[in-house]
């Protein structure tokens, strides 16, 4: 539990942080540190330098009026405790309360979770289902990356090595939207063995106008259950349509297995949890 030697830097601007990343390809950003520090202590990660984002102003905060904007360094505890957020995006506060334990919630950040792209993270699926986007800053300026483009693979995102997520945005949900996150926790790690985030909007005709369902834990990166989404499109959200969507949720997914939960069992859980998430989403409309 003793990391290799590393440098520590605490820049006061995002631009300066990006510059440090550009200058040293082995440097890593430090946000909440609850994934990175354990990896360093096991010497699974040995960055030459840690660039701590904690000294940069303006990366923390929640603005839930209109489009929801959340600073990248906002912690799970802040998400969990935000009343205004719980009114517009109840799935976010609910999921934040289900990440790790209170210590993890106090340190772990939304931006860190998305940039890390852990295959069993909760907020990757939440972000994908809510069709969020991230604003990023690098040495070449700023850009926005949409939900469907951010996650590339296991621990891999579309971020360039010198790019830093500064804020995370979610569109304000249309009326008639219900959302829910269902998580099957690993008893040791607390990570999602399988997690399913579902966001469903019905139109004035009562039929599904849009459905986004994202799966975490089972595939190597948070992935949408496209077939289920299409099955729901234009349908009434009822037991029958939910069952059909649940049954199709794992179709086309490349699913991982390990000694605790096999591929077959995870595939089964994807269906069960999709059904449960959709049922809860329907109840919350």
């Amino acid at each position: 539990m003793f990391p290799n030697q590393f440098e520590y830097q605490r820049p006061d601007s995002v631009q300066a942080a990006a510059g440090l990343l550009a200058a040293d390809p082995d440097a890593k950003l430090l946000a909440g540190g609850h994934s990175l520090i354990p990896a360093m202590k096991l010497r699974l990660a040995s960055p030459s330098s840690l660039v701590d984002l904690g000294g940069i102003e303006g990366l923390v905060g929640i603005d839930a009026a209109g489009t929801i904007a959340i600073g990248a360094m906002t912690t799970y505890a802040m998400l969990r405790d935000s009343r205004e957020l719980s009114r517009v995006l109840p799935m976010v506060t609910d999921a934040a309360d289900n990440v790790g334990d209170p210590a993890v919630q106090a340190r772990g950040t939304l931006g860190g979770a998305l940039a890390h792209s852990d295959p069993a993270a909760d907020f990757t699926a939440i972000f994908l289902a809510l069709n969020g986007s991230v604003d990023v800053t690098g040495t070449n300026g700023t850009r926005t990356i949409g939900a469907d483009d951010l996650f590339v693979d296991l621990f891999t995102t579309a971020l360039q090595p010198d790019e830093i997520i500064t804020s995370v945005s979610f569109p304000a949900p249309d009326s008639g939207t219900g959302m829910a996150y269902e998580k099957f926790r690993h008893p040791a790690s607390g990570y999602a063995v399988v997690g399913v985030a579902a966001v469903v909007t019905t139109g004035s005709d009562g039929n599904v106008a849009s459905a986004r369902i994202a799966i975490t834990g089972a595939p190597s990166k948070a992935t949408r259950a496209s077939e289920s989404e299409q099955l729901l499109q234009g349908k009434k959200l009822n037991d029958e349509s939910i069952a059909a969507a649940a049954a199709a949720a794992a179709n086309g997914l490349d699913i991982n297995g390990d000694h605790f939960a096999s591929e077959e069992y995870r595939r089964h859980l994807v269906g069960v949890l999709t059904g449960r998430a959709l049922t809860r989403a329907a109840a919350g409309m």
Partner: peptide, 26 residues
Amino acid sequence: ALYEGAVYADNGELITATMNDYAIPK
């Protein structure tokens, strides 16, 4: 009964070598 169990791979590697894998009850 519900959570704990040390798991070795056939080659003798301890798969549950950290608290991330070995489930101590909370």
